[in-house]
Amino acid sequence: MVQAAMCEDIKEFTPENQAVVFSITIGRIFCFTSFDPVPEETFIYHNWFRRDKLSKRIKLSLQPPRWSTFSSFQLREADQGPWRVEITDKDGRILRLFRFSITD
């Protein structure tokens, strides 16, 4: 994994406005991951947790020779609070962990 970020937007496969606090007014947030090289076709998971409760689990495939991918989350009023996203390989090993908050 060469890059990973929590961001407000993704433009031309580049994360924009990386942050640790996101306002629900921006509407959607993204978890961006980029892998190079990717020896063979595989997949990863983006696990979104609100506090310690799994809220969303997204399976993303990776294609050789390199691959960038992301998951996103639509923000609602009820989603305010501390969050984390665990990026794991297909075997569940944590590759990266982001902690952030969704606020007013």
Binding site: V21, S23, Q80, G81, P82, R84, R99, S101, T103, D104
Partner: peptide, 9 residues
């Protein structure tokens, strides 16, 4: 430990 941010930046 994780910070529980509230309010509006």
């Amino acid at each position: 430990v994780q910070v529980d941010w509230v309010g509006r930046l």
